[in-house]
Design a protein around this nucleic acid. Structure first.
Length: 225
DNA sequence: CCAGACGTTGTT
DNA sequence: GTCTGG
DNA sequence: CCAGACGTTGTT
DNA sequence: GTCTGG
């Protein structure tokens, strides 16, 4: 599962890393929560462009936004066939940039969960496999929204949580973003747990629990168990 | 045929 | 919009 | 994902 | 318990 992440890299680094333009003005974020507006990368006429989308995908047929509370993640195993996601999987795939993400570990005998922060060992921003949609509200306003695809946790994640976001290696970005895809099975094949050896995790304080806390302190390692 | 769901996680 | 359940 | 609210009327 | 806000 992936219900909170961080995105604090500066614009220059993000543009360089994702080779995309039109990055909106961003401030560093250490505690991004569902329903917030987040940057996505998609391909428009062969070029990568940034855009903002509300986190929590609202299918075009939804009559209100409520479903968005339950579509912050899409299961890799079923994303190709579920009514809420299959059209987006076929036609509207995107990358969702993050410097790291948070997961909450259930600790036996403890009433509270232990939050962890997970990054790539090389500290580069990662790309979650994402989907986006455009929804027209009853008032006639268009809203773009998105979802992060999740899969089984790898060996690093397993002790922490059984699910993790799908992270795509740079070499797979073009394949994922390509509008014309003859090979749906090939896309499905990209939705695997990322290599655990290339990731790193540490405990962080309960401060992360409240989405109101959005400072660099959220990343600080703690020994609390 | 029409009505109603369409989602994830975690917990029960 | 499209599929499933009744 | 977690935290925090969850209600009405009337008055300031 | 469940929904909304962040």
């Amino acid at each position: 599962m992936c219900g909170r992440f961080a995105l604090y890299s500066d614009s220059f680094s993000l543009i360089k890393r994702f080779e995309a333009d039109a990055l909106p003005e961003l401030c560093p974020r250490y505690n991004v929560a569902p329903t917030q507006s987040i940057p996505i990368v998609r391909e428009e006429s062969g070029k990568r462009r940034f855009a903002l989308a509300r986190w929590g995908l609202i299918p075009h047929w939804a009559k209100d936004m409520d479903i968005g509370y339950h579509t912050i993640n899409a299961r890799a195993e079923t994303v190709a066939s579920k009514p809420a996601f299959r059209n987006a999987f076929r036609y509207r795939r995107c990358l969702i940039p993050a410097d790291g993400f948070y997961e909450w570990q259930v600790v036996p005998g403890s009433k509270t969960k232990q939050p962890w922060f997970i990054v790539l060992r090389d500290r580069e921003p990662m790309a979650f496999a994402g989907l986006w949609e455009r929804w027209r509200s009853p008032e006639g306003e268009d809203l773009e929204s998105c979802s992060i695809i999740v899969t089984d946790g790898n060996e690093l994640m397993q002790p922490i949580h059984d699910r993790m976001p799908v992270i795509l290696a740079p070499g797979d970005w073009d394949t994922w973003l390509e509008a014309e895809t003859k090979d749906a099975a090939g896309l499905q094949g990209l939705l695997k747990p990322y290599s655990a050896e290339d990731m790193e995790a540490w405990r962080v304080s309960m401060m992360i629990n409240s989405p109101r806390n959005d400072s660099e302190e959220c990343l600080k390692q703690t020994n609390k168990i």
